[in-house]
Design a protein around this nucleic acid. Structure first.
Lengths: 254, 254
DNA sequence: TGCCGCTGTTATGGAATTGTTACCCGCGTC
DNA sequence: GACGCGGGTAACAATTCCATAACAGCGGCA
């Protein structure tokens, strides 16, 4: 994402709008505001914001109605601003589809935290499909899903963490201390046995023939690598330059 | 939707019913009528109308009560018919989730205009049939309807909200905090026990064998997923010995 | 051949997570 | 005011996970 996220805030109270704009602008967002539902819809149409903040109680149109209309044509994430804690309960069932809501009065910190959280969730999951294919294995880094021959393989948390690190750098040798510190924490950088056990478990679930690993290759004394077979293109995007060097280094072995 | 919208009118005055039926029929709607609350509920259950008109004042049951009961199990849009200046009822009705209201006496034109407007809002926002099939379960996201082996399963509000979130993202792992915040609200992000209890209750109603969930899969420490069989089956056997079962189709012996 | 270093595999018990049930309370109806 | 219903709570049972340790396999090398 090259430019900063664009936030649309819709509220009939100018003071609230000013507060929102001030806070989010200083937090690095771009902000546009609307004083009513109709205006908000128009601006959403014209500017295509990345996220919308909607006050539920407005004179010309309820925030729920605005949300419904927005959702008719876009999947823009929405945070509702509820007037009091009281009606939050009442509203909750109706506004499924809102990604979050915030009770007034809210603190500026909470506002920007919620906005960031929602953006992280929605953009992270919807934007770039980040799927790594290795042989008959498919690793969906966003959805935390692994398939083998099209069938879901259930991984435990540790198994996933390990595979995630490997799959984020396909074709690149991951050094033992690096893997250990990324999965178990920096203080485990010398606990090789963890790696051996969990690589073994991963192989049992993923490899066709665990005793002859095709996916997760061992580099004695150095680390492990998620292999990219043959001429298959890399499904990754950045930071592969180091691969060359390490590979040469490794030719020594076998 | 191929056929004309079906309108259910409930009123104890035969004259009003006749008027409604005449007007709406000539306007291209199909109309069924009921003279009392009980009868109305029964007809709603059997015929699944697209919209309901409810008189607030009736001998056997108040229109508000009928609305409450309808809303427990369906999301059918409702227009209330208020006797006169009964503002209290009007306000209360809208709070309870009526989509519109109409003060008697009303003109035929106004009636059909309101009906059309409400239908446009509610159906228009979801004109695409949105039905999820999972095994022997059918989930109609628009009509808030769940069938098991063709039989309607009645879900409570919370059960439905949870299932709705899951069914809106079939085959995708829904994270625990995501589910919690969408069903109970963001401040319940960490109340895992809610999820455990309600997933269990859902499974009891939907799964063939609740102790071996086929529909709602658990991902420990992560979340839950509404499974799409065929596209994904668990290869979750842990032990070395080939765990036979799993793949054979569920014997639906009901 | 036998020792050694490194890696891979498996069993196990305690810990953590999840599933289930009974019970309670509040609400609205009868 | 008893009753049914939906929903929250807490206790307990069941399941799964994971660190650990013991052991097996495989060269290399003297």
């Amino acid at each position: 994402m090259s430019t900063e996220p664009l936030v649309l805030a819709v509220d009939d109270e100018a003071g609230v709008l000013r507060l929102i704009k001030l806070e989010l602008t200083t937090q690095g967002f771009r902000v546009i505001t609307a004083g009513g539902g109709e205006e908000g819809l128009r601006m959403a149409e014209e500017q295509r914001p990345d996220i919308a903040l909607l006050d539920i109680v407005m004179p010309d149109m309820t925030g729920l109605e605005v949300m419904r209309r927005l959702r008719e044509r876009t999947s823009i994430p929405i945070i509702l601003l509820t007037a009091k804690g009281g009606d939050a309960d009442k509203v909750r069932g109706l506004e499924l589809g809102a990604d979050d809501y915030l009770a007034k009065p809210f603190s500026p910190e909470e506002l920007s935290a919620r906005v960031r959280a929602v953006l992280r969730r929605t953009i992270g999951s919807s934007n770039a499909e980040n799927i790594v294919h290795v042989g008959n294995i498919e690793i969906d880094l966003n959805r935390r899903l692994v398939k083998r021959d099209g069938e879901i393989v259930t991984l435990t948390r540790t198994e996933w963490l390990l595979l995630q690190v490997l799959a984020s750098n396909p074709g690149k040798i991951m050094l033992n201390p690096e893997l250990l510190s990324k999965v178990w924490g920096p203080e485990y950088r010398d606990d090789l046995q963890y790696l051996r056990v969990w690589v073994s478990r991963l192989r049992r679930k993923l490899e066709v023939e665990p005793s002859k690993p095709q996916l997760i290759k061992t580099f004695q004394g150095i680390g492990y690598m998620l292999d990219i077979p043959g001429e298959s293109e890399p499904a990754s995007e950045e930071g592969d330059e180091a691969t060359e060097d390490v590979n040469e280094d490794v030719e020594i072995r076998t």
